[in-house]
Design a protein around this nucleic acid. Structure first.
Lengths: 257, 257
DNA sequence: CTGCTTGACGAACAGTGTTTGTCAAGCAGG
DNA sequence: CCTGCTTGACAAACACTGTTCGTCAAGCAG
């Protein structure tokens, strides 16, 4: 048991990275990424911000680790869950849900965050499923990239939006904008467009931000997977492809560097 | 002509929003978004940061306006450029290129930035082309969302990467990581994975970050458009769809709110 | 002429990430 | 047991950030 110290420092148990990550993630949930400062994390842990540098190189690395922490509980669908496509949809859906459940943590994934162990685990599984689905190595590699974009963007979009994703709103209440969600403001933007210059957007306005967000996410994923399948060579099986343009007779493939 | 002032304030021409946006964008080009502070912008304009508040509500709004400014020169393809698909690909390609040419400005688009006049102009055109391609209103609305995700993510990924996208690297040179690109580090991450646990990622490693980035972007866009077309009703024409799963006989559509 | 509006912007404030240096506990080696 | 080294903890300090408040000055309307 640590003794009282000459600087009147109270007895402190060793922090540990897990505690740091958990505290950080809790603050992300509450305040959104931008408002999570090292001082806030340290305060939640009853220490000072300098203490965190034992565990992370800088704030950026901390957030990357927290992102990975957020998907730690995502379970890879087992083989009994269905064919490769079903499992891929399940997997991606679970990742999106896990990230969306933590405010805007997904924004970290869009900012040069190196994947951690859980991210790699899940990526390995997704790549494996894509391969099972018949994509060759080139297509598989770029599909991973595309799915990654979809996952982070969609998780960000789907995150519960009761709190602004920016710094906490003006508490004075003088500015009504601060208490409105981004989605509502985007919707208002579309609805306010002059119809003579923006006929399509005006016509679509009720739908652009509307609908069930899970249904929307699933639809977009379906689009992507159908699109991936459309890249498979036609001689793979007896099925034919739906082609609107007669651009190529052979499916185009990622070039080799 | 303004006179000399009692506070020895030198004669200043009125700033103007355009000058502010141009100066900001130049700094984004040079330093990346995060390093662009209001003080830096003000300094470039030979004024003080408080001056900028005449033109923008806050830093967030400034960056959103700069994002719009970055696509100001994107020209909508005219009808002679080809069918709707060709024009959509052209349009999206131009937007991505415009954004990618300005370091990480696209990251602003992933952060609750309300669209400006140019963004709306381009979105209107994309929506119009999608409609021309046969998507109904529901699908069109969600496709706009998906394309937006693709555009910002891809522009961010394609941005020239000679400068770190984060704060300027440690100038001491003691840390070699700071001078490496994110892509290189991601590549190294994949290549260093143990093959027994990550067989697929290890096999794909040379391709995951490799290849020509324009080709990659075009491939991903093709996937998305092909996927969109795969959602069209089959009774639209004599063409059949490539379906891997027998989940639905009718194409699934976005639900109405 | 007076008062109001608006652009310009310094000073100040609260807050941020990070570095440096000190303390204290634990461990290894003599 | 003692000494030196390592490592976790973390305060103090620094440079920097976004923003607010208040003042100045020019222009305009009544």
């Amino acid at each position: 048991m640590p003794q009282a110290r000459s600087r009147s420092r109270p007895s402190k148990s060793m922090l540990g990275l897990d505690a740091v990550l958990a505290a950080t993630l809790a603050l992300v949930d509450e305040l959104g990424c931008e408002a999570v400062s090292l001082r806030r994390v340290a305060q939640a842990l009853e220490t000072g911000p300098a203490s965190l540098y034992v565990y992370v190189r800088d704030r950026h690395e901390l957030m990357a680790l927290v992102l990975d922490h957020a998907v730690a509980d995502v379970v890879v669908p087992d083989e009994g869950a269905g064919d490769w496509r079903t499992r891929l949809e399940l997997l991606v859906g679970r990742i999106v849900a896990a990230l969306a459940g933590h405010n805007d943590i997904a924004s970290v994934g869009l900012r040069n965050a190196l994947p951690g162990p859980h991210g790699l685990r899940l990526t390995e599984e997704a790549a494996h499923l894509l391969r099972t689905g018949g994509l060759d190595d080139d297509a598989c590699s770029w599909a991973i990239d595309l799915l990654g974009q979809y996952i982070y963007s969609t998780a960000l979009e789907n995150a519960d939006d009761p709190r602004p994703r920016r710094a906490p709103a003006d508490p004075s209440g003088a500015d009504p904008i601060g208490s409105e969600t981004f989605t509502a403001r985007l919707d208002a933007t579309f609805r306010a467009l002059p119809a003579e210059h923006y006929p399509t957007l005006r016509a679509l306005a009720p739908r652009l931000t509307g609908g069930d967000q899970d249904a929307r996410a699933a639809w977009k994923l379906r689009v992507i997977i159908d699109g991936l399948l459309a890249q498979l060579p036609r001689h793979t099986d007896a099925e034919t492809h739906d082609r609107r343009s007669a651009k190529t007779t052979e499916p185009w493939r990622p070039s080799r560097s």
